[in-house]
Design a protein around this nucleic acid. Sequence first.
DNA 1: AATCATGATGGAATCGTTTCCATGAGTGGA
DNA 2: TCCACTCATGGAAACGATTCCATCATGATT
Lengths: 334, 334
Amino acid sequence: MSGAVQRRITIKDVAEAAGVGVATVSRVLSGGSASAETRERVLAAAARLDYRPSALGRNLRRRRTGGIGLLVPDITDSFYARLADGVLACARSYGEPVTVGVTGDDPEREAELIGTLIEQSMDRLIAVPSGDGEMWAPALRAGLNVVFADRRGRHDVPSVVPDDRAGVLTAVEYLAGLGHRKIAYLGRHGQSQRVAAFTAALASLGLPADRDLVVHARSSRDSAYAAAAGLLQHRPDVTAVIAGGNVLGEAAVLAARELDVRIPRDVSLIMFDDVPWAELCSPPLTVIAQPAQDIGYRAAELVLRQGRRPPAVTLPTQLVVRASCGPRVATSRR
Amino acid sequence: MSGAVQRRITIKDVAEAAGVGVATVSRVLSGGSASAETRERVLAAAARLDYRPSALGRNLRRRRTGGIGLLVPDITDSFYARLADGVLACARSYGEPVTVGVTGDDPEREAELIGTLIEQSMDRLIAVPSGDGEMWAPALRAGLNVVFADRRGRHDVPSVVPDDRAGVLTAVEYLAGLGHRKIAYLGRHGQSQRVAAFTAALASLGLPADRDLVVHARSSRDSAYAAAAGLLQHRPDVTAVIAGGNVLGEAAVLAARELDVRIPRDVSLIMFDDVPWAELCSPPLTVIAQPAQDIGYRAAELVLRQGRRPPAVTLPTQLVVRASCGPRVATSRR
DNA sequence: AATCATGATGGAATCGTTTCCATGAGTGGA
DNA sequence: TCCACTCATGGAAACGATTCCATCATGATT
């Protein structure tokens, strides 16, 4: 290790080096009025000393902090990773740092993380809310500027979400068009929006809307697998499955393979969220693509713009047909 | 929207409510000495007012900031997402917030992000360094506590890395055992460590170490595809490819499919990094699994522990055999 | 009984910035 | 010539915490 750690350079050092007062330095650096000559002297001194204003001091004084918080259920999930990437891309263009927390879809952990963020005086927060969004009240009261992403938690918080209703409808219509009548939805807990859209879609097409046709998993891989396997095993009459996310889709493919259910011959599969491996999979998966990155980007824009915000932004999804869906064969499986 | 935004509750409010001085409140809350009765009064007041100490004030006074910075090339890449997850898991157990930046493997962007982090008075930083790590000198001089992850940038910075040498050797030996003699390495720029290990491994097994057998891509998907396609097209004599990361592996599979090169019949493929879809791929990919999450976790431990740190931690990799490698067929491809 | 040690307590300084306000210099107009 | 006005400038307060230090009460020791 080379040099000793040097004391932080403060505005006072710059003021001294430039032969002016600290107020003047502050003014020059934040674009206030100053004579051309002083401005030059200050700028030169700041550059020479490699001065960087302390965000701590600034934020303390300004009683707000730059920076935005981001809470996602699982950064390992491609969807949320892309969402986070969108947020980071937008934040970077504003020069704002982003503090990320992983909630694991656990409201308790979420509350804990919100607490940490408030302690940091974060006043802007983008979150994929877990639970029903009830515990957000204290955070909102604390003056937090919140935008929800991917899920519409409460109605008094602006949100950026994919068009679940249209996405589900497209998927159901596509499958119905292939002759499927028993279509199941394999989802995560808390996707009430989509489930509603699903049953509505079934109804509108005159398909049976059996209650057991929607299966819920928790957000872990194991739980997803169990749910998928259970569905495939106990319901030989369903000939098509809509998986409500990429880990659900992965679980469905794995479970089908394990149970010797062939896709698409025995069951057709549509997965929400287009991930790179959907094309690599065998068979390549037909998906409802979601603009994950855009969702993040738009959410960041919303939270960074101070003006009043629209209550909800809905971004379109898109059906990408590959090879995991086929016409229904006349005979039921097995 | 319901209530008005309320003023932040400060230590002064708590002191007043408890009928004591601010110093006493601070002492009680940070575990200093106080009489049982005062302690109780203070704690009660703090709880009643839902007081949260401001990290800004604390950090400003303490002249250090909690919190750790994390710089990764691409949060969308499963490997780095898992690495980040490890960091976040460890940081959470210490209650430390993590600020994430995406460098895109661009030294300039990296330097910019380091600047932002320094302004935030972050004093702890975990980074997957891009470039050769030369521009880290100013950051280190600024007293930053840095740990490198995944890549060993400079030798005066502790690092947590996978055992590339052993991983590469295992892969090469495995392929050689299947009869392959022309083995190519498809890597990213900056993987000098692995390339060295690769040529060493070839040499130790008496295999030809043609210079053209290592192909470099930039870290974008497009660049990876181009490199993979180029390799497959122009070198019909290579019968086995080692892909140095999951996006490289994905590109190789895609390119092979496009060029009608069959895996494993025409070429065998080993991919660095075990991702969930490796098993879903057709054929399922044989991989060198890397403990991405562990790397992140250990790096976070290192950067959070104040004690002196070991210069480098190396974590083992593991060969996971699936179905993308086969014996060399006598005839060359094409 | 006088002194000393101990421990609880609060006042005030400090961290690095922004911003209010007072001061002083210079300019234009009456 | 003098006044009013603008403009640059620097001192000082404030933000919210921690921590040094002095003070004071209490119990113990000689």
